Computed example of a mutant assay.
Amino acid sequence: MKKSFLLAAAAAAAFTVGLSGCSKKADGKIKIGIIQLVEHTALDANYKGFVDGLAEAGYENGKNISIDYQNAQNEQANCATIAQKFINDQDDLIFAIATPAAQAVANLTKNIPVVVSSVTDPESAKLVKSNAKPGTNVTGTSDLTPCEAQIGLLKKIVPDAKTVGMLYCSNEQNSFFQIAIAKAACDKIGLSYIDATVSNSNELQQVVQSLVGKVDAIYTPTDNMIAAGMATVAQVANQNKIPVISGEAGMVQSGALATYGIDYYELGKQTAKMAVEIIRDGKNPAEMPIQYLENCTLAVNESTRDALGITIPADLK
């Protein structure tokens, strides 16, 4: 372990982007700060997968690493405060879960290695120079889901749908990226769409209610605000017989009808492997391409399906 530490520190010192690397602390533990934007199923699974992935690689909290986990409760000001705390504490590595959390960290440090996850497109979020070659102190994994396939799923499940409500938060860059893909997919198959944006969780019920009578289905991407409030979305939509196709399986668990989604726990484990390459092997985040999960799976909420009286096509099972 000591040898690996010295190698990592030596490699970090040579980083062209000026990374601080992993220095040996008095208690012998690597300090890892974890900032999570908000609590919901997907991000919680992402965090757990990361911690478990570290443990599988031999890095256990309280033994050879010290994890400082902080939740920003979906407040941007909290993100900045937490990021500054990690910097002041001279953490060796920061793991940022979700785009706003990652942006807060990246804006405040160019020296500490940062791995991110649950970020749809790090390049458009200006976290990296390019997803193929980051060129900064930031790398990690993308949670980009097959938005086009999700729109195709919507059309298969609701074949008579003519208009789709695009439900997302107007403050989340990752949502704009996904919605653009979803709209292009709708254009290809002749579906009309209506934007339904919220800027805070208090608007969710009213905005979903405003779609009643206007849309045949609702599509929502891997949007953190919508995910955290999916129970509210589902309550209004399901009562009014409007199927909701979501960006990830956690939202289906909370009442959406269905999705083709990625496994956020596995995404966290994949991110942990990248973190280990930095803290153990001295790899430079600037030269580590953003990684993606290849496999997506179908998730259906059977209670929602029954409540809506929808039959899932046999070829989707």
Rank of each mutant, 00 (worst) to 15 (best):
M1H: 12
K2S: 12
K3E: 15
K3R: 12
L6P: 06
A8T: 10
A9W: 11
A11Y: 07
V17P: 01
G18C: 08
G18Y: 14
S20L: 07
C22P: 12
S23V: 13
K24L: 15
D27A: 06
D44F: 00
V51C: 12
L54Q: 02
L54Y: 04
E56I: 07
E60G: 05
E60F: 08
N61M: 07
N61T: 06
S66R: 04
I67M: 03
D68I: 13
Q70G: 03
N74R: 09
A80S: 14
T81H: 04
T81E: 13
T81W: 06
K85E: 10
F86K: 09
I87H: 09
N88D: 15
N88V: 11
D92F: 04
F95P: 06
F95V: 10
I97E: 10
I97L: 10
I97N: 09
A101E: 09
A102G: 11
Q103G: 06
A106R: 13
N107K: 15
K110Q: 12
V114N: 08
V114Y: 02
V114H: 02
S118L: 07
D121T: 10
P122N: 11
P122L: 02
A125E: 07
K126A: 02
A132R: 09
N137I: 00
N137Y: 06
V138N: 04
G140N: 10
G140S: 07
L144N: 01
P146V: 12
C147L: 08
C147P: 00
E148V: 14
Q150N: 15
G152N: 15
G152E: 11
P159Y: 12
D160A: 14
K162P: 00
T163W: 04
T163N: 10
L167Q: 02
Y168I: 01
S170I: 06
E172H: 05
Q173H: 14
F176L: 11
F176K: 13
F177D: 08
F177S: 05
I179Y: 01
I181Q: 14
D187F: 10
K188T: 10
I189M: 14
Y193Q: 12
I194P: 09
A196Y: 04
E203P: 01
E203L: 01
L204Q: 05
Q205N: 11
Q205E: 14
Q206G: 10
Q209K: 06
V212R: 00
K214D: 11
K214Y: 09
A217C: 04
A217N: 05
Y219R: 04
T220V: 01
T222M: 06
D223T: 01
I226M: 14
A231L: 09
T232N: 09
Q235R: 03
N238H: 02
K241E: 05
I245G: 00
A249W: 07
V252S: 03
V252H: 00
Y260K: 03
G261C: 08
G261M: 12
D263A: 08
Y265I: 07
Y265R: 13
G268F: 08
Q270I: 07
T271Y: 05
T271G: 01
A275D: 05
V276N: 04
E277A: 13
E277T: 02
I279M: 01
G282K: 03
A286V: 04
Y292V: 03
L293S: 11
E294D: 15
C296Q: 14
L298P: 02
L298V: 12
A299V: 07
S303L: 07
T304L: 00
A307R: 06
I310L: 11
L316Y: 13
L316H: 09
